[in-house]
Amino acid sequence: MRIAETVTFGGGGIDRAADLRKDAAALAAADADAGSRYLPLFEGRPLVAETGLGWMPKDELPDGCGEPVLLCRDAGITRFAVEIGAGALPAGSEALPGRTGLAFSEIRAVMTRLTPADAECAAMSRAIFGWHRSHAFCAACGSPSRVVEAGWRRDCPSCGAQHFPRTDPVVIMLITRGNSVLLGRSPHWPDGMFSLLAGFVEPGETIEAAVRREVMEETQVRVGPVSYLASQPWPFPSSLMIGCRGEATSEEITIDPVEIEEAMWLTREELRDAFADAHPRVAPARAGSIAQFLLWNWLADRLD
């Protein structure tokens, strides 16, 4: 898909500066550089300004920030992320004391108005700090582990094990049959919210097999040829959404009520109405999601 990297959180083209992660002297110099910039996060929410992310110099960071994580090099500027610890601000705080025009925001609320580079940095920051919170102890021996390589590794001083950030692969499927696309909804979703079917790739499974298995498990619809379209990092908490297209070889739907609440075939004309918020049952897909991206481009015949 030629426009695959225009999906939200993709195509930022940033230099992740992996060469700096093991270079203690270069990292110290970047940390001391007045031109370096830091992105504070609180409770998984980045600081956001009216024009983008709320980048700030180190000497303006609030109290209670943890160890910085290296994000990237951008036009000569080294960028880091820092997480404000629990207790440094009241739970649920949106404002940063003493700073106007800045607020901590849920990424999904602002992702469509960030630049591609800022969106990628925001997603990276949320995912990496989420990994640190869930991997504070060694998976091999249970001892506390420590952060190394500018936040991109954790080492266990007890048994010597090394732990690296992980991403969970998830297939999300544009399943079509003729002029219709298959949509489903989970029980806890808001009224009117439908999306493409999706599910985690299991150990020892190919992407194509995961697409066919998930669709069969959730709807009993059989899928034939499968092809890759696009991917999207989805840091809620740490998924990589692998967008695929599949051609259904059967039509009858029998849902698994444990997995989904409802599934339906929607024609192109009905999907067009849904995007225009004119469908009686289906609301517009969430802007910025890969589901919305794939559905919109299928509707516009731009999947090549």
Results as ranks from 00 to 15, higher is better:
residue 66 G to M: 03
residue 196 L to C: 02
residue 127 A to S: 13
residue 283 A to H: 10
residue 109 A to W: 05
residue 227 S to P: 00
residue 161 A to F: 06
residue 116 P to V: 07
residue 293 F to S: 01
residue 254 T to V: 14
residue 91 A to K: 15
residue 104 F to M: 08
residue 185 R to T: 11
residue 220 Q to E: 07
residue 268 R to A: 02
residue 83 E to P: 04
residue 31 D to V: 11
residue 86 A to D: 10
residue 244 C to K: 00
residue 3 I to S: 09
residue 258 V to H: 14
residue 205 E to Y: 10
residue 228 Y to P: 07
residue 119 A to W: 01
residue 5 E to A: 03
residue 173 M to L: 15
residue 21 R to G: 03
residue 183 L to I: 00
residue 177 R to N: 07
residue 115 T to A: 13
residue 280 P to H: 14
residue 89 L to N: 07
residue 299 L to N: 08
residue 68 P to K: 00
residue 293 F to M: 06
residue 245 R to S: 04
residue 261 E to C: 05
residue 221 V to M: 09
residue 52 G to I: 05
residue 33 D to F: 02
residue 281 R to A: 08
residue 138 C to Y: 05
residue 215 V to A: 00
residue 66 G to Q: 09
residue 178 G to V: 03
residue 295 L to T: 02
residue 101 G to P: 03
residue 162 Q to E: 15
residue 110 V to M: 01
residue 175 I to P: 00
residue 36 S to Q: 12
residue 267 T to A: 12
residue 92 G to L: 00
residue 283 A to D: 13
residue 1 M to S: 11
residue 115 T to H: 06
residue 109 A to C: 06
residue 160 G to E: 10
residue 245 R to V: 06
residue 79 R to G: 03
residue 193 M to A: 11
residue 135 H to K: 14
residue 98 G to H: 13
residue 15 D to Q: 12
residue 182 L to A: 00
residue 287 A to P: 02
residue 209 A to R: 02
residue 270 E to G: 08
residue 239 S to N: 10
residue 263 A to T: 00
residue 17 A to T: 09
residue 122 A to S: 07
residue 286 R to V: 12
residue 165 P to A: 11
residue 6 T to S: 11
residue 13 G to H: 03
residue 253 I to W: 03
residue 226 V to A: 06
residue 31 D to S: 12
residue 265 W to R: 04
residue 19 D to Q: 12
residue 237 P to R: 08
residue 192 G to Y: 09
residue 142 G to S: 15
residue 216 M to K: 10
residue 298 W to M: 08
residue 65 C to N: 03
residue 121 C to W: 06
residue 148 V to I: 14
residue 274 A to S: 13
residue 259 E to G: 05
residue 143 S to T: 15
residue 134 S to I: 14
residue 206 T to Y: 14
residue 85 G to V: 11
residue 132 H to A: 04
residue 236 F to N: 05
residue 301 D to M: 13
residue 253 I to H: 06
residue 186 S to W: 10
residue 215 V to M: 10
residue 281 R to H: 09
residue 103 A to H: 08
residue 270 E to Y: 08
residue 70 L to P: 04
residue 232 Q to T: 14
residue 203 P to Y: 09
residue 87 G to K: 01
